[in-house]
Nucleic acid binder design. Structure first.
Length: 427
RNA sequence: GGGGGGUUUCCCGAGCGGUCAAAGGGGUCAGACUGUAAAUCUGAUGGCAGUGCCUUCGCAGGUUCGAAUCCUGCACCCCCCA
């Protein structure tokens, strides 16, 4: 058994713990079952769920059994923790689709077939769907004093707001999560629940319920939330959420996100999200201190995480795209290479004939490709030196495109500004 | 019900008969610098067949050689007195 608790502690992954005397030794004694809940609000996990997922992974690597609980039932209700407003409810069909998507993503991070510590994936909808309202009130609700519920931060915070209410539905959320914990204790011998620091109230509610219903002693650990040094959430950019699904966020964008993490956040990310050991991380810390421009931390972070989430093929593609996108002139590449590198770049097609004769005007092409909203805008960009053909700057306002501009068999790569690309295909 | 103020280009906000595609700021977009960072600096910012033409200043009319600017009506907003 690896000393998992000590490992979590030096990484800074322990925010609160219901019993920091007992839990470390209890974990060292044998294979324990630990669970984390995931919200099925979308059909893909995002960077925000990466941390709890990796938490489970650490437990698994230390010889414990992780349970990933997808909240098909709780997702129908909505957790008021950390939310300032009443949530919109998801439809049953939508939830089912989301659960499917999440399931497949988890398989690359957790091992579902390794003996006694094999990961288990459960959906609480399976045991909640047939639980009748009356039975639930009698068996579960009876154990929850309302005055205690009212003191939970998640509830208190919402009641204090004058601009947002709290429905009875959301108020009841903690009963469901508490019952999940007890159910897992009962069915899977799970004694430990882990969650983000905003889950403390829900976790302790489960522990209380376990004591009342089964006289069981359950435990909880919370981890810090992954936030940036400016206080904002990790995993969001101007253009949206960074997802784990390659369909929603390309491996290249995923890689770039981590590569661009601020120096102040890099140390935390390395500790929280990678398996690098203490010495390696400290070496990166000092590298960041003495030669920040080398960005060894960010490079390592991006490589580790892209590898983990998208595999070696995804990492290779991301690195290749990086070289081209930030590199020199593009030429002597095949259509195939370009299609891969610029997988999620907009493109537009033309008849090859337009390249003959006088050719196609660059400013028109920029408009067609969506790099400029109007021809005036295209000319403006051109005039200011922000237009590139195959990564070579062009300043001639009347530049025409011809066959000789093709970077591959049928494609010309246009760029506006630093990173806005578009492909022109000539069939 | 009485009195007053407002509606401007993506946003805020000047303009109050021609020199107004309309000051200034924000935002955005380019460029320089740089570590694919932050900050900073520079430029651009209605459209088009680009020294010119066309469409914009709540909406519809009118006065005038000429209106975002004046008049009339309409719509919406705000404020003060009842």
């Amino acid at each position: 058994m690896q000393k998992i608790y000590e490992e979590l502690a030096w990484r800074g992954l322990i925010h609160q713990c219901t019993d920091d005397e007992f839990i470390p030794q209890w974990l060292n004694e044998g294979c324990r079952t630990v669970y984390v809940g995931f919200d099925p609000t979308a059909d893909s996990l995002h960077v925000g769920s990466l941390m709890p997922l990796l938490y489970l992974r650490r437990f698994q690597k230390a010889g414990h059994r992780p349970i990933a609980l997808v909240g098909g039932a709780t997702g129908m209700i909505g957790d008021p923790s950390g939310k300032s407003q009443e949530r919109n409810l998801l439809s049953v069909e939508q939830l089912e689709a989301n659960v499917q998507g999440i399931r497949s993503q988890m398989q690359s991070i957790l091992d579902f077939d390794c003996g006694e510590s094999s990961a288990v994936l459960l959906n609480n909808f399976d045991w909640m769907k047939s639980f009748s309202y009356l039975d639930f009130l009698r068996d579960i609700g009876k154990n929850f004093p309302v005055n205690v519920m009212m003191t939970k931060d998640s509830v208190k915070g919402r009641l204090e707001r004058t601009d947002a209410g709290l429905s009875y539905t959301e108020f009841s959320y903690m009963l469901l999560q508490a019952y999940d914990f007890v159910h897992l204790y009962d069915q899977y011998d799970c004694h430990l629940q882990v969650g983000g620091s905003d889950q403390w109230g829900n976790i302790t509610a489960g522990i209380d319920l376990g004591r009342r219903m089964y006289s069981a002693q359950l435990y909880g650990i919370t981890c810090p939330l992954l936030t940036k040094s400016d206080g904002s959430k990790m995993g969001k950019t101007e253009s949206g959420t960074i997802w784990l699904s390659a369909d929603r966020t390309s491996p290249y964008d995923f890689y770039q996100y981590w590569y661009n993490v601020a120096d102040d956040d890099a140390g935390k990310c390395l500790r929280f999200l990678t398996d690098l050991n203490r010495e390696e991380i400290q070496a990166l810390d000092s590298s960041r201190e003495s030669e920040p421009q080398k960005r060894e931390s960010q490079t390592r972070l991006a490589e580790e995480l892209t590898m983990l989430v998208h595999g070696s093929a995804g990492l290779d593609a991301a690195k290749r795209a990086k070289e081209v996108l930030f590199g020199a002139e593009i030429n002597d590449l095949s259509d195939n290479d370009l299609a891969q590198i610029f997988a999620d770049v907009p493109s537009c097609s033309f008849n090859r004939d337009v390249l003959g004769g006088d050719g196609l005007s660059l400013s028109d092409a920029m408009v067609d490709a969506g790099l400029a909203k109007s021809k005036s805008e295209a000319r403006r960009t051109l005039k200011q030196g922000g237009a590139y053909i195959n990564n070579q700057r062009v300043t001639d306002l009347d530049r025409m495109l011809s066959e000789s501009d093709l970077a591959s068999e049928t494609t010309i790569v246009l760029r506006s500004g630093k990173k806005k690309y578009a492909l022109l295909r000539f069939q």
